[in-house]
């Protein structure tokens, strides 16, 4: 499927697996990126340590696109500020907007996300907003200049899978942008299902970080995402509403 590229903001990617880098050892990042085949990795921006601690950038293989998030932002203004600091760190102009008002469910604030998307898209960012799957909001995000839409499958870090399945399907069917399922995907089978539905890519972090063997789980996700993508491209077979349909010839039986 060499011609099957994921295009985000004019950039082409072969991989449809966006990798998070949170909650696991820096020493595992390179292996995770390689085994996952990931070409995009997410990062967060935080106050720097003064001690010369190891920097995550030293662990990310060359050629991988960095996708800073705006985690910690509680409104559009804070998200814009974090995005600009991320860009000043000198690693490109991609940004994943993440705006949350509560720490219990970590649900995205869709309205503030639309505002931040507009400001940052006008400022030249490739804007990838994380959002609660709502068709009207997705349309507003597209009009505001979003490069992709990133609906949540279930609450961040929950590993609960496609709780919002039907609403993500609506976005896939109606929005002419890559729909990247972000947050809550806990198992490769769930990633595969989202890809079969027509999702453009999967973003996963906690599913790997909390797995028993991170690189092996990265491999499993890669295979699941590729399998789901191929199934989508192939076109799934139809489902009967009732009854059965023989797979074998209905003639030539060994009987009178």
């Amino acid at each position: 499927m060499n011609n099957d590229k994921l295009i985000i903001g004019g950039h082409e990617f072969n991989s449809r697996f966006i990798l998070g880098s949170g909650k696991y050892s820096l020493n595992l990042i390179e292996a995770a990126v390689k085994v996952a085949g990931a070409e995009i990795i997410t990062l967060a921006v935080r106050r720097a340590n003064t001690k010369e601690q190891e920097n995550i950038l030293d662990y990310i293989p060359n050629g991988v696109t960095l996708l800073p998030n705006t985690s910690g932002a509680r409104n559009a203004e804070e998200a814009v500020r974090i995005a600009k600091l991320a860009r000043e760190l000198g690693c490109g102009n991609f940004v994943k907007i993440e705006i949350m008002r509560d720490t219990k469910y970590l649900l995205p604030d869709n309205q503030e996300t639309i505002k931040a998307t507009e400001v940052l898209a006008n400022d030249g960012f490739v804007v990838m907003p994380y959002m609660y799957p709502d068709l009207n909001v997705a349309r507003d995000l597209k009009n505001a200049g979003a490069a992709t839409i990133m609906p949540l499958a279930s609450p961040i870090g929950s590993n609960k899978g496609l709780a919002t399945r039907d609403f993500i399907q609506i976005l896939i069917d109606e929005i002419d942008l890559p729909i990247i399922v972000d947050a809550g995907i806990g198992k490769p089978s769930q990633a595969c299902e989202a890809m079969e539905m027509g999702a453009a890519a999967i973003m996963a972090n906690t599913a790997l970080a909390t797995a028993g063997n991170l690189p092996l789980m990265a491999a499993a996700f890669r295979q699941a995402i590729e399998a789901g993508r191929n199934a989508y491209l192939a076109g799934l077979g139809r489902v009967l509403t009732r009854g059965a349909s023989a797979s074998d010839p209905l003639t030539g039986f060994l009987r009178d």
């Binding site: 880098s21 997410t42 990062l43 921006v45 720097a48 920097n55 995550i56 960095l66 991320a86 973003m203």
Partner: peptide, 10 residues
């Protein structure tokens, strides 16, 4: 002054 850098995140 705010001095920031990248850290792991999702």
């Amino acid at each position: 002054l705010e001095v920031v850098s990248f850290v792991g995140g999702g």
